[in-house]
Design a protein around this nucleic acid. Structure first.
Length: 876
RNA sequence: GCGAGAGUGGCGGAACUGGCAGACGCGCGAGACUUAGGAUCUCGUGGGCAACCGUGGGGGUUCAAGUCCCCCCUCUCGCACCA
């Protein structure tokens, strides 16, 4: 009699019910504590993938749990709907990006509903809707007013494949973050957000983000990379045109007496001035051209050989008044500092390599405590920055420890007017112009008379025109739409041109979490009272890949919006959970490369063979490859839709929560899915069995029945305790589910026993409680089956509105304990004692244990360790 | 090179502040019920015949170490000439 549950009908039933009853609709309620639970919203690519399933299952357990714990839970969902794939689809298939996106959203919304996620769908937003992106434009204008959005001409990252500019954060190892094409440098005039104005706060506030994983904080800290130093002017030995001095930035001003040459970045405009009319000019120009042709990623690799040429020009070290040569070197970056450095070979490894290669003098000016360094026999730079290093050959500063010398030399430079203390960041301003169509139009107008003029607020949104030819060639698609480009100047009324670039889509995702607080607001971007109630996000959940992209931009935007007075929160995300990737094994054929599992012949036991090879009469052994992140190219994708259709959403959720803790990578396993499904079936059968008995009053009281009832209660309340602890403590959903499995296993045992004889009334009560608690504890994890079982137990919907059960400590305690007994730290026996037994009683009983006589007999007892309720250890 | 994290059965993974290593699941083995079982239920399952040995390797602290300290190895991820 296998009465298995029909997940299809049951899940559809409850999804419809939740929707009909508006079960997950929330509004502000000052009487209740709030909890804002947010998962990173998806790009509507067409279908959800296993990473989404995992991400949203984790978030949903937390949202449902917090709800049962009495919180007013905000749990919204939306769409990061602008972006290049829609535009590419338009180019390739001749469909409109908007239509393509809408269809994808409709399909994926259906998929998410099938997962049974407790979203408040009334708050759904889509960033490509004018209702949303008009506020991007409004923020842009506000930032422009404050000088936080500005236009400049500079070298920018250009992806030739996406045909657009990229921000620094969007270049990974010299390649485009999206399409992996090699990024080149291009000189363009572009819009930037002045994120560097917030560099100091973005850096310092990282220390307050104690709810974030350390590695994300480290990555952001490193990305911002603050350096404290001084800018010092080195006068030229003879002026070169207008140029009379070279300004350098250094953090090692303490080594300035050891500077024996200087280097300029090849891109520096000063190079041309310095070499003008010199015999070296030809060689230098050749070098600069050769270096600038190199890919940036290649040129800036740390193991790249240091190269340079002498310009023929000389500068004067303002501290020693010595003439030192000026070089151009490939390792000097034009964008950082002043694009020029003083080089101290004795105390900087790069300078050391360079000087050694070109025979430039090396001067030791920091000596180690043992005074063992010999200027003429250095094998590498001595880079000590702590007090251990002492200055030598440094004039009046000789003898000072490095940290003090830094201060004194900076003081001196400032007092003499030759230098200034400066802080430099690696963080650059965020280039937000994109030469693409499917994004937010930048609300700016160019007037020949008035210059750059923002679109007046009452004219927002600047609508993205619907009819645009997509050729995939040339400049911004918007630039070809005359009706769009041609406009009138809001100031003088003369003919003017609109900006035709759109905004980086990361702008859209930089404040969507704020918009969820008041998504239907039409007159303002944010409704301050709603934002004040809901913000900040209490738990944010998503992939690690956004550690310095989205997560940095969102922090920046939150601070800007705070400074606009729309919110008081300094940081958007109090707690951050970066979930691991979903991985699966791969298969590789020596001839065909990656294979789908369906392309495998043979068997696991006898070795896999390649089916495409076999079809052409060749026998190729297939290697079971490494476990890799699911990806199309590696042909190891599992479609969640198929999973849900076959096993149901509850099983899909249970599997992805049980197979690994959320922070770690999850390895896909068909057997693991089976296991999750089997567990739910087992729960179902148990509950059918139990409810069949619960109504009937059987038997009277008997001793065994009473004892069994206590046992059931103990198991029930220990499970409540364990599941609650596990969910509260670092999202240990896998062990929480394990506890539920143990609970079910235990209940199977007691019901089997009980059904043999009569059942005491208190036992029936205990079982009734156990059944209820099981359903409640299961509800956040497998909500559909939990609702159905809750109904089976005779309750009305929804189990999601029930309070989370509380463990009764009086019921969790055992009456008897099993105490392990060690001799010299090795387990030799166990004894059973009363829970309230005294130390003397336990030790006495242990000493009398016959099994221990072999180990204790005839030996001198040196010490007895007693850990209350834990163990006894005899040292002999 | 710097930074973060990880290394535990055949596999995924447990073990909160040092206190019974291997919970739970998968797999495997045996049995029960069955015409049948790839369903379900029950029992077993780190290695070794044993003494014993077992948490990447080697030292150490401790009555007691997966957990703490020192040295080393491997893997994953991130950053990478930032002056």
């Amino acid at each position: 009699m296998t009465r298995s549950y029909d997940h299809r009908a049951l899940e559809a039933k409850w999804q419809a019910r939740w929707e009909h009853d508006h079960t997950f609709h929330v509004r502000e309620n000052p009487a209740k504590p709030k909890f804002y639970c947010l998962e990173m919203f998806p790009y509507p690519s067409g279908r959800i993938h296993m990473g989404h399933v995992r991400n949203y299952a984790i978030g949903d357990v937390l949202a449902r749990y917090k709800r049962m714990r009495g919180f007013n839970v905000l749990h919204p969902m939306g769409w990061d709907a602008f972006g290049l794939p829609a535009e590419n689809a338009a180019i390739e298939r001749g469909v409109h990006p908007g239509g393509w996106t809408d269809e994808n959203i409709a399909y994926m919304r259906g998929q998410l509903r099938q997962m049974g996620l407790s979203y408040d769908w009334t708050r759904e937003l889509s960033t490509c809707s004018p209702d949303y992106y008009r506020w991007n434009q409004w923020f842009f204008i506000k930032m422009h007013e404050r000088g936080l959005a500005y236009r400049k001409r500079s070298a920018v990252n250009w992806c030739p494949s996406c045909e657009t500019v990229l921000a620094n954060e969007q270049v990974e190892d010299g390649h485009c973050w999206r399409c992996d094409a090699v990024v080149v440098q291009k000189e363009l005039e572009q819009w930037f957000f002045k994120i560097t104005q917030y560099a100091e706060e973005l850096l310092n506030a990282l220390d307050t983000l104690t709810g974030w994983p350390e590695r994300v904080r480290v990555m952001q800290r490193h990305w911002i990379n603050r350096s404290v130093g001084v800018e010092v002017d080195f006068p030229l030995a003879e002026p070169a045109g207008d140029v009379t001095a070279l300004r350098i930035f250094t953090t090692r001003q303490d080594t300035i007496f050891g500077a024996t040459f200087m280097s300029l970045a090849p891109e520096s405009p000063l190079v041309a001035a310095l070499i003008a009319g010199r015999p070296e000019a030809g060689t230098v120009r050749e070098f600069v051209q050769r270096v600038s042709r190199q890919e940036r990623a290649v040129r800036t690799a740390v193991d790249r050989e240091k190269e340079g040429v002498f310009t023929g020009a000389w500068a004067v070290n303002p501290f020693t008044n010595e003439r030192i040569p000026i070089w151009v070197a490939n390792f000097v970056l034009y964008e950082y500092g002043t694009g020029a450095i003083m080089a101290v070979p004795a105390h900087d490894q790069r300078d050391f390599e360079f000087a050694t290669k070109y025979g430039i003098p090396i001067r030791l000016v920091i000596q180690n405590p043992e005074a063992t360094l010999n200027e003429r026999a250095l094998e590498g730079a001595y880079e000590e920055q702590e007090a251990a290093g002492r200055l030598v050959s440094s004039g009046e500063f000789s003898g000072l420890a490095v940290p003090e010398a830094k201060e004194r030399i900076a003081d001196y430079a400032e007092s003499q007017g030759i230098g200034t203390r400066t802080v430099n960041y690696r963080l650059r301003d965020w280039g937000v112009s994109r030469q693409r169509y499917w994004g937010t139009p930048i609300p700016m107008i160019y007037c020949d008379g008035c210059g750059v003029v923002p679109v007046p607020e009452d004219q927002l949104p600047v609508m993205l025109p619907a009819d645009v030819p997509f050729t995939g060639k040339g400049a911004s698609p918007l630039a070809r739409i005359r009706e769009f480009v041609e406009t009138t100047c809001p100031v003088c009324g003369a003919g003017a041109r609109r900006e035709t670039d759109t905004m980086d889509t990361f702008v859209d995702s930089s404040w969507y979490f704020l918009r969820y607080c008041s998504p239907l607001e039409t007159t303002q971007a944010l409704e301050p009272a709603a934002v004040a109630y809901w913000m900040a996000v209490d738990q944010y959940i998503g992939g690690i890949e956004h550690a310095v992209l989205h997560l940095l931009y969102a922090r920046f935007f939150t601070k800007v919006i705070r400074d606009l007075g729309l919110t008081k929160v300094d940081e958007p995300f109090v707690n951050l959970l970066t979930q691991g990737m979903v991985c699966k094994e791969t298969y590789q054929c020596p001839r065909h490369g990656w294979l789908f599992p369906s392309e495998l012949a043979g068997s696991e036991k006898d070795g896999w063979r390649c089916a495409p090879c076999r079809d052409t009469g060749v026998d190729s052994a297939v290697e079971r490859g490494r476990v890799e992140k699911m990806s199309k190219s590696k042909k190891n994708i599992v479609d969640p839709e198929h999973l849900i259709a076959t096993y149901g959403a509850d099983t899909a959720r249970m599997f992805s929560l049980f197979a690994a803790p959320p922070q770690k990578d999850l390895e896909w396993s068909d057997a693991g899915v089976e296991g999750a499904s089997r567990f739910l079936q087992r729960v179902w059968r148990l509950m059918i069995e139990l409810t069949g008995h619960l109504g009937r009053a059987e038997g009277g009281t008997d001793e065994n029945g009473a004892a069994r009832a206590r046992e059931i209660r103990r198991l029930t309340h220990r499970t409540i305790q364990k599941v609650t602890d596990d969910v509260d403590r670092e999202f240990q959903f896998n062990t929480a589910i394990a506890a539920l499995m143990e609970f079910v296993n235990g209940l199977y045992k007691v019901t089997a026993e009980a059904s043999k004889g009569g059942r005491a009334a208190e036992e029936t009560d205990a079982l009734r409680e156990a059944a209820q608690m099981l359903v409640l504890l299961l509800a956040p994890f497998a909500p559909h089956i939990a609702e159905e079982l809750w109904e089976l137990l005779g309750h009305g919907p929804s189990v999601a509105d029930q309070p989370w059960p509380a463990a009764d400590p009086a019921l969790t305690a055992s009456e008897r304990l099993t105490i392990p007994i060690q001799v010299n730290g090795k387990l030799r026996s166990r004894i059973e004692v009363a829970a309230d037994a005294t130390e003397e009683q336990v030790i006495g009983q242990a000493q009398g244990d016959p099994k221990l006589q072999e180990w204790l007999g005839g030996k001198k007892l040196r010490k007895v360790i007693y850990v209350q309720k834990k163990l006894v250890n005899f040292v002999v």
